[in-house]
Computed example of a mutant assay.
Amino acid sequence: MEFRKLDPRSKNVLITGASTGLGRAAALHLRSLGFRVFAGVRSESSAAELSQVPVADPLIGEIIPLLLDVTEAASIDRAGTVVKGACGDTGLWALVNNAGIAVCAPLECVPPEVLRLQLETNFVGALAVIQRFLPLFADVGRADRQRKLRPWQCGAAVSRCVRSRSIRQGGHERCAAP
């Protein structure tokens, strides 16, 4: 099998949750490889900080900080409009749904509103971002998307996953090892 070397100069990538951690590291690394990275962050201060990270070679790659809160539909839509305008006909090459929060506590100790926020961020937010940005993938035809993505199965799959990881123990729900 023969492999071609990827030319990232005309490739646009969107990364959510790019203000810190793995999202930030991925954005900086992809920029260093020559990609044009739309780095989704929730605050102006994070956007300003990311835009001031020094560039070793100004001819390689680009980071465009993008205000994006995956829990807010209006924010996702605004970001989609910005990315669509900036990408033009080249569209997106990749989407990295990195935004997320971790609630590390026994299930019986987690208030429902905290669990809702985690699900809204990690699952519903990721799905909303996919739905908004999928049309920007230049080489993905409508028929392919309909065949590969079955949104009506998504909720049932998540429900089964959550149920399979929970067990009843002494009248309390406890998290079971996968």
Rank of each mutant, 00 (worst) to 15 (best):
E2K: 07
D7P: 09
P8S: 06
S10D: 12
K11E: 12
V13C: 03
L14E: 02
I15K: 00
T16V: 11
G17Y: 02
S19T: 06
G21T: 04
G21C: 03
G23F: 00
A25K: 11
A27S: 08
A27H: 00
H29I: 06
H29E: 15
S32L: 14
S32W: 11
G34I: 06
R36S: 03
G40I: 06
G40E: 02
G40Q: 04
S43K: 15
E44V: 10
S45Y: 08
S46Q: 13
S46T: 04
A47P: 07
A48E: 13
A48L: 12
A48P: 01
A48V: 15
L50N: 06
S51T: 00
Q52P: 00
Q52E: 11
Q52N: 09
Q52C: 02
D57E: 10
G61S: 04
G61A: 05
I63S: 02
P65D: 12
P65G: 12
L67F: 02
L67T: 03
L68P: 01
L68C: 05
D69G: 07
E72P: 00
A73K: 15
A74M: 08
D77A: 09
D77E: 12
D77H: 14
D77P: 03
A79I: 03
A79V: 03
V82N: 01
K84M: 05
K84P: 00
G85N: 14
A86V: 08
A86C: 07
D89W: 01
D89G: 08
L92V: 01
W93T: 07
V96T: 06
N98G: 07
N98R: 04
A99Q: 02
G100E: 04
G100S: 04
I101Q: 08
A102N: 03
V103P: 00
V103E: 03
C104K: 10
A105K: 15
A105F: 09
A105S: 15
P106F: 05
P106L: 01
E108L: 14
V110M: 04
V110S: 05
P111S: 08
P112E: 14
E113S: 13
E113Q: 11
L115W: 09
R116C: 09
Q118N: 06
Q118I: 09
Q118K: 04
T121G: 08
T121W: 07
F123Q: 05
F123T: 09
L127C: 10
V129E: 09
R132K: 14
P135S: 03
L136T: 04
F137W: 10
A138I: 03
V140Q: 05
G141C: 12
G141D: 15
G141P: 05
A143L: 14
A143N: 05
D144R: 10
D144W: 14
Q146N: 07
K148V: 13
P151Y: 15
Q153F: 13
Q153K: 13
Q153E: 15
C154M: 12
G155T: 05
G155L: 11
G155Y: 05
A157R: 10
C161M: 11
R165L: 04
S166M: 14
R168K: 09
R168S: 10
H172Q: 15
H172C: 13
R174Q: 12
P178H: 04
P178E: 08
P178G: 06
P178V: 15
